[in-house]
């Protein structure tokens, strides 16, 4: 489990390796409250499915992605 909902500031945090299973958890958390920002600084490796959730649901994304591949090559998803 590398998707964590922080109760103090209400952000969703991705940590370490985020495998395909995390996609559903992440999607559920975002759909629950679309205003929650996602912090992906601590994510070191992101599965396609997880990226797809961000791309489709377009939450506010905080910081630079910790997965160098995503950071270097992929568009930063976000509202708008």
């Amino acid at each position: 489990m590398t998707v964590v909902l922080r109760t103090d500031d209400g952000t969703i945090r991705l940590e370490g390796t985020c495998p395909v299973e995390d996609a559903e958890t992440l999607a559920a958390l975002i759909l629950e409250d679309p205003g929650r920002p996602v912090d992906w600084v601590g994510c070191t490796r992101m599965h396609t499915a997880v990226y797809q959730v961000l791309l489709s649901l377009r939450p506010v994304v905080l910081g630079a992605c910790g997965d160098p591949f995503v950071d270097l090559w992929l568009d930063r998803p976000g509202p708008g």
Partner: peptide, 20 residues
């Protein structure tokens, strides 16, 4: 990387269906 098609309105989001 782009969504392959628009998500059908009103349908539940399926995190495990790849649409890229």
């Amino acid at each position: 990387v782009e969504p392959a098609g628009p998500r059908p309105a009103g349908e539940e989001f399926d995190a495990y269906a790849c649409n890229l």
